[in-house]
Simulated assay, not measured.
Amino acid sequence: MTFLIIGLVIFLGVHSVRIFADDWRRQQITRMGENKWKIGYSLMSAVGLALIVWGYGVARETPVVLWNPPTGMRHLAALLTLVAFILLAATYVPRNQIKARFHHPMVLGVKAWALAHLLANGTVADVLLFGAFLAWAVMSFIAARRRDRAAATTYPAGAMSGTLIAVVVGVLAWVAFAFWLHGPLIGVRPFGVAM
């Protein structure tokens, strides 16, 4: 559990600099240059993510169960992760109505993903991992919207074609991950079937 906690502190800490210390962040980018900042940011993120993956895997070997979620939570989790994949796709597909409306679909996708996994899992490691990501996503979204208002940021109007592409890409990615990749990569088959 220690490595999971250290990984969360590093990974979410690095990703929280803009939330809690944006002025300091800008000063560091000015002082060291954008490329060096990005390299350091990426290395720290990678270390944090590796510790999260390793620590979570170790914690799952001897799980401490807090509650056993009802079976229906798995269905709700599946729906929420589908929404998360569509939001993630909308982050990258240009000129879609989802991004035009919500401005920060990736952070909303993290919220949906974390909430889904909190609802469907009941161990201490799950609460730490997904609870931390959910708390971070809530704070990140609030901070991003505040920055947008302060800078009077406007987002281009979305087109139906971009929205349809985002939805189709999100659904296809969700199907691939839920039915084929989640089992081999995470060790859990969300639908309990091998395909």
Rank of each mutant, 00 (worst) to 15 (best):
R95F: 11
R146Q: 13
I98G: 02
H117L: 10
I142H: 09
F102T: 15
G109I: 08
G72A: 13
A137H: 01
A89W: 10
N121Y: 06
T123A: 00
T123D: 06
F85Y: 09
K99T: 08
P105Q: 03
F133H: 07
V110L: 00
A112Y: 09
L82W: 11
I98A: 05
V64M: 13
A144D: 09
A84C: 14
A84P: 11
L88C: 10
V138H: 03
F85K: 05
F141N: 11
V65R: 13
L79W: 15
R74I: 12
L108I: 07
P94D: 08
R74W: 14
V93S: 08
A112Q: 02
A100M: 05
T71R: 15
D126T: 02
R145V: 06
V65A: 15
A120Y: 00
P105M: 04
A89F: 04
F141M: 11
L88G: 11
V83T: 08
F102E: 07
K99A: 01
V124Y: 00
T71I: 14
R74A: 12
S140N: 12
W136R: 00
G109H: 00
A137E: 02
W113N: 03
N96A: 10
D126S: 07
F141K: 09
L134H: 02
A132S: 14
V83C: 10
V127M: 02
M106W: 06
A144K: 07
V127E: 03
A84M: 15
G131S: 01
K99Y: 04
H104L: 07
A135N: 05
F85S: 08
W136D: 03
G72M: 13
P70Q: 15
F102S: 03
F130A: 06
P94L: 13
G109P: 04
H117T: 09
S140R: 15
A77E: 14
H103L: 11
R95G: 03
V124F: 03
K111L: 12
L76Q: 03
L88R: 03
V110H: 00
L80V: 10
D126L: 00
Q97L: 11
A100Y: 01
A100C: 10
A114G: 01
V124L: 07
I142W: 13
H75P: 07
L88M: 14
N121E: 07
V124P: 02
G131N: 05
A84R: 08
L134M: 08
R101L: 12
I142R: 07
L87A: 14
M106K: 04
M139D: 08
A143Q: 04
W67C: 08
P94Q: 06
N68W: 14
L108P: 01
Y92T: 14
L88S: 10
A84D: 13
R74K: 10
V124M: 00
L129C: 05
F102P: 05
T81P: 07
H104V: 11
G131I: 00
H104C: 08
